[in-house]
Design a protein around this nucleic acid. Structure first.
Lengths: 244, 244
DNA sequence: CAAATAGTGTCTGTTAGACACTATATG
DNA sequence: CATATAGTGTCTAACAGACACTATTTG
């Protein structure tokens, strides 16, 4: 007969070797969007590691268990490596997992959606030869790594939904932006023209924006008012969705 | 000088040992809700393993990398163990992760929300001494394992949101249900009375339900019509939310 | 019959969309 | 001035909430 160690939590913890538990490989996949030249764009990186080395993909990474305190921290760390800024919007999107998505083994990807103004990081990105904005509409032209196309499509669809009931997409614009800019972005995301008066009215009624007093002078017509978002706007949802 | 193996994907895969990559421990935490005796209830299990052995918690489990083909499959497997049925509604909720949530090590929980009619599994659950429905309102009376209270609250809040813009909560009712039942469930989730006429009208206009022709005779008044959901109802969202 | 619950008819105030209008810039 | 873009005034059809009404059961 074996002499048994008492089954206390302390003894359990003492003997706990993580690697004795077979557990899927975990990666973090941030999908960073911006709005540039009238198009939705996504940040892609040329992969320097297997699998799918050499293909374009998301700026993925593994949790650094020594230093990362949260899953978000991992996402922010990977985004910082490629942009040198912290995006003003970051939200967990979905976790994808199956035995073959990564060829190697059962693996799980926790995807995040992030938004940023391209002006905030354009200069830094241009110093990197392996990193660039890619128009969402032209993604069909390239083969993306692993299941990253599926993840991007999932993020894109969620962002379309958010355009219907919030002004979260505004985080893909500069800190100061105009209502016509925001409306055009929403139109790109939703895929149809929106009635100007209604769009402006719902945002005005919700009191989501602050008039900076400044005007954007470069439009070749009447200058548009520059606004910035109130902090409350981040979590505000309209009672009524834009119609699809 | 070392003779280097060519850096091909094949060589990479050949040498790929998962356990050489330190990766967080991953568990799946399904939150199964039902509606019984006018209350929202959640399925809890007395934990037979550390950590927090002996406390009540969610019916958690690990991905079985030999047999589970998806993350959902793991959630369904754990729920089946405790209910012997497959719930009609299952949706990924959120992934929680940090270095201390599980005391042992960096760990990640992928939580799922599931809904079921208690009638579908009541008989089986009553055969298990370690499993029971717990009213959400009385969760304060017990200490839950690890961060399961936080996960349940997160799921509860998401379900409240869904009550505002969908009839997904109906999956917590029997396959055939009445409009007053559904309205009461929504009132519990949202935490306030709803105008009867408006509630009925929005569901009628959306054509989400099928009149079974049957009536529920036990209400002590005029019998209520029994409906079942169309499959389209699962993904339908109203253009206009119920007001909070 | 009264009591209880289910379900409807209808009025009213609010509001989204339509669209024509005004406002302010450039050249 | 014309052109371009920003932003507003206002009408109307649709509809959510209020609430009183009818309908159908039990006892």
């Amino acid at each position: 007969m074996l002499k048994k160690t008492p089954d206390t939590e302390n003894n359990f913890l003492k003997n706990y070797k993580r690697h004795e538990f077979a557990t899927p490989l975990l990666s973090i996949d941030p999908v960073l969007f911006t709005y540039r030249f009238g198009q939705l764009r996504v940040l892609l990186v040329k992969r320097s590691n297997h699998p799918d080395k050499g293909l374009w993909g998301l700026p993925s990474g593994f949790v650094d268990m020594e230093h990362d305190e949260t899953l978000e921290a991992t996402a922010l760390r990977k985004l910082y490596e490629k942009t040198h800024v912290k995006p003003p919007y970051l939200e967990q999107l979905y976790s994808f997992g199956n035995p073959s998505r990564d060829k190697c083994a059962w693996s799980v990807s926790i995807a995040y959606t992030a938004l940023i103004a391209h002006q905030e990081c354009q200069a830094y990105i241009e110093t990197l030869s392996d990193t660039q904005w890619w128009s969402y509409e032209t993604l069909d032209e390239i083969k993306l790594a692993i299941d990253h196309r599926q993840i991007i499509d999932f993020a894109r669809e969620r962002l379309r939904q958010k355009a219907l009931y919030s002004i979260v997409p505004a985080y893909a614009l500069s800190e100061k932006f105009t209502l016509p800019e925001l409306q055009h972005l929403h139109e790109v995301l939703i895929g149809k023209k929106l009635p100007k008066k209604s769009f402006r009215r719902r945002i005005e009624q919700a009191e989501l924006l602050i008039d900076t007093g400044e005007k954007q002078m470069d439009s070749g017509g009447r200058p548009a008012t520059l606004y910035r978002m109130k902090e409350t706007a981040r979590h505000y949802t309209f009672i009524r969705n834009l119609e699809e």
